[in-house]
Amino acid sequence: MNLTLRIWRQPDASADGEMRTYEVADISPDMSFLEMLDTLNETLIERGEEPVAFDHDCREGICGACGMVINGQAHGPERTTTCQLHMRHFADGDTIDIEPWRAAAFPVVRDLVVDRSAFDRVIGAGGYITAPTGAAPEAHATPVPKPAADAAFTHAECIGCGACVAACPNGSAMLFTSAKVNHLNVLPQGAPERESRVLGMVDQMDAEGFGGCTLTGECATACPKGIPMPSIAAMNREYLRAAAKR
């Protein structure tokens, strides 16, 4: 396959960026999108040009590092991460637009790399369980009802990739935050910090400059892990319950 790529190039956070056009040749349909970008970068390095910077780590769809907007869609046309997107979903001769996540809370560091540390700070504001660490406790010491375990697993799927923020017209982090709040708030282990968790994480989410939810639904459509829209309503309920108790 031969493709035309239009990629956002920006040397650093304070510089202006622009879309620049590149041609790549002999791309195999079995390549992943990141392997296709690797191919481009090899030719750029051979030509003595700066390679395109993009985040990646596991390349198996579990770390959430590889975010980029492909043809206006977070992680591209398939509901998966960019590293798990294959070139067979494109056609020979296609022109593909590649842009970084766009949100005030995710400033561009370079090219396609954005600073997602705002997510870390949201987690730091309550997305954990305070427990003395030591040997792992006996698994059956705390019985977890099956529906609660299922709900926790659904929300624990979130890999913090930020596609929900990138896809949302308001740059809102409600889907991410709701996944993290619900994951722990449905479990007995999360119960002691149930109120302070949701209040703290929502406060931090607001402080980071993420937008609010207008129930557009773009986040859940873009989420590679299938975190569903009702998670947001569930977090709203947790929030109202906690605010009433405070």
């Binding site: 770390c63 959430g64 600073d115 540390s117 504001a125 890999i159 913090g160 402080a207």
Partner: peptide
């Protein structure tokens, strides 16, 4: 599944905003 702590490019670190401290009640 776990979420990787975001890799920070040196020099890109922001101290991060703090939410307002709200009185209880």
């Amino acid at each position: 599944m776990t979420m990787a702590t975001v890799t920070r490019t040196p020099g890109s670190q922001r101290p991060g905003p703090r939410p307002p401290v709200r009185p209880r009640g």
